[in-house]
């Protein structure tokens, strides 16, 4: 795993929060996520990556933050559960899609987003790939970006 393959995702995350919500996320210290780490988040949007590399990109949020961000996208009011699922899916889709710009030397395909919810929900990480966890902080709360990508081996 190369830092150059991680950065596009971080840039995309920052760009998306700036464009969609007018927010500048703060980075907290990155770390290695253990596959069996307890998950402290309420909702995760997951995009599978295929093609030259295999992996997943996950954006995890607390329920309140997901609710607040969705409401902002809706232009106010209270977001329904369906709205939140929709918004988190779109969020992770845009992050993964935009990150491809920085990884153009590879052909990567991104899946449709899927959503996992509930306290301590489980994410099926692939084996033998380090997962980089990057917590972000915005005024509304905290969210978390996790990236596990197989080494991209050029052909």
């Amino acid at each position: 795993m190369n830092i150059r393959h991680i950065e596009p995702f971080i840039d995309a995350t920052v760009g998306v929060f700036r464009e969609m919500f007018g927010l500048e996320p703060d980075f907290l210290n990155p770390y290695l996520l253990q596959r069996d780490d307890r998950n402290e988040w309420d909702i995760s949007g997951i995009i599978g990556i295929g093609g030259d590399s295999k992996g997943v990109v996950v954006v995890s949020l607390s329920g309140e933050l997901a609710q607040a961000l969705t409401a902002q996208l809706l232009g106010g009011g209270v977001a329904t559960d369906d709205d939140v699922v929709d918004a988190v899916g779109e969020l992770v889709n845009i992050i993964a899609g935009n990150a491809k710009k920085g990884l153009e030397e590879y052909r990567l395909d991104i899946s449709l987003p899927s959503i996992v919810r509930g306290p301590d929900h489980k994410i099926a990480w692939q084996q033998n790939v380090p997962i980089i966890g990057i917590p972000f902080k915005i005024p509304l709360g905290r969210f978390h970006l996790s990236i596990g990508l197989e080494n991209i081996i050029t052909g």
Partner: peptide, 21 residues
């Protein structure tokens, strides 16, 4: 910088992958 920490995290991930191997 924050980026340095990220690079070190990625490096740590590599070491762990080697270890698993």
């Amino acid at each position: 910088s924050w980026r340095d920490l990220l690079a070190l995290t990625v490096g740590l991930g590599d070491i762990r992958t080697d270890l698993e191997e």
